[in-house]
């Protein structure tokens, strides 16, 4: 792909990132940080490509496989932790209902 096109994409994504996070209530800052941390695990894509190349080099295999493991921990751990946190936010009515049911 053309280099300038990649830069173009990068610049647009940068502005989008700034705009997305303008008004977020403070109680959501931690889940948001954790959720975007999971997205930064997208480096898993690079890790798969790096590790999947068959170039008969043990160095590439070791580096690629380690990268896949680490990025996968980041992705899976990140999404699950965020989900766990967000699962705890409830409205009062919902919380009461749940207790009644129990």
């Amino acid at each position: 792909m053309d280099l300038m096109l990649l830069f173009f994409i990068f610049t647009l994504a940068a502005f989008l990132g700034f705009e997305l996070i303008a008004k977020v209530p403070s109680q959501l800052h931690t889940p948001l940080m954790s959720g975007s941390n999971a997205i930064s695990g997208i480096t898993i894509v690079g890790a798969i490509i790096a590790g999947g190349t068959d170039d008969h080099s043990w160095l590439t295999t070791v580096l690629g496989t380690s990268a896949v493991i680490l990025a996968m921990i980041n992705v899976v751990g990140g999404y699950l932790v965020t989900d766990r946190m967000l699962g705890m936010f409830k409205k009062k009515t919902a919380a009461v209902k749940k207790e009644d049911a129990a």
Partner: peptide, 27 residues
């Protein structure tokens, strides 16, 4: 991650990495 995306010309790495990069600064 975005830098790694430039290395292997991968647009999803660039976009997702950059989104996290800028939103993290704002936060």
């Amino acid at each position: 991650a975005s830098a790694a995306g430039f290395v292997i010309s991968n647009n999803v790495l660039i976009v997702a990495g950059c989104l996290v990069g800028t939103s993290g600064v704002i936060l």
